[in-house]
Amino acid sequence: MGADTTSLLLKIEGLHKCFGKNVVLDGACLDVPRGSLVTVLGRSGAGKSVLLKCLADVVQPDSGSIFFDGKPLTAGDAAARADFRRRCSFLFQSNALFDSLTALENVELPLEQTTAVPDKEIRERSLEALRQLELDAYKDHYPSQLSGGMQKRLALARAIVTRPELVLFDEPTAGLDPLRRNAVFAMIAKYQRQFGFTALVVTHDLTEALLASDRVALLDKGRMCFEGTSDEFSASTSAVVGDFRDSAAALGRTLASIRRGEALQSEDS
């Protein structure tokens, strides 16, 4: 919506996915322009993570199309999938770091297992990625010896060491306090600009997403019910967008009515 199709790195059309009778994605569509930071918002259980896992080939969609750099990614096309995996990285909500490997070994892993790059160059590139994410002093630490924020940065270092064009972030701020949430979004925005990759983030943290993203989409009941800039999102008159955007105000109204009810009860007694 609004994006020039030639500048699109990723395009999703009519994605469907059911788990038994539970329809998780019901024709989801999304355009991701090259070099942008796009955030998919939605309530818990809206299908955001499944959407990302369909892209990463962890979950197979029932139907629909995904185009990467103009080429379709179909389940049977191993070459197209391999090309996509080479040019894309995935950041799990849990970070999915190898707990028996040190920070440096974790960053070396994708280069070691998927490329023919010589060992010396792997070491140099991995150290460089750790340096860029200010983790070089912790290269010999195991993930369990790092703080939550450092683990997130380590996962990002592992994701960018292969120099991907697209990085998928699955709920990068889940379970974090507001300060850490800000820090993680700032980190994503900073490195997205520094390294020039395209970022697709799924989250339900509205404020941070609106501030950091170039474009925002809202997924509701498996369908994309809004796509546009942060300003367009803030100005949208759609009821679904309004519900999501004004949830804090709705909470205020609910709490006020609860307090009014309590006051009436105390007056009656």
Partner: peptide, 12 residues
């Protein structure tokens, strides 16, 4: 802990 899924998404 999704470490195996992480390997697969890397293309390994």
């Amino acid at each position: 802990t999704e470490q195996i899924a992480a390997l697969e998404t890397m293309g390994a």
